[in-house]
Amino acid sequence: MSDTPKDFDGRRWHDMGGQPAGPVKPAEHDFALWEKRVDALQVLMSSKGYFTVDGLRRALEDMGEDAYEKYSYYERWIAAVNQNLIEAGLYTLEELGAKMGEVKTRGGTYGDASA
């Protein structure tokens, strides 16, 4: 991260082995329903052949370091799943945008909106 553009050797941000980092904090949480659904969508759509685990990882890597620091694991995963499904041509951004707009009108919480 402290690399200047001149020092850049091609190592990408996700390739973390051996980089300096702080202590390992034993953090964990149980997964929320929406996170489990993201996980399930990833497994189902890749097992149906719409993308590969490498396609998912590629999208996660291409989101960049800022996204890794800013968003949670399954937030990045749904973005990567969506990216791959769009690339697979399963639906269009227009369809997605319209559906997301409709979902938002249902209520202010995940419970209300995911009826």
Partner: peptide, 13 residues
């Protein structure tokens, strides 16, 4: 070699 893209060979190796 250090090409860009999705590669599963870690840089440290």
């Amino acid at each position: 070699m250090m090409p860009p893209g999705h590669i599963r060979t870690p840089a440290y190796l």
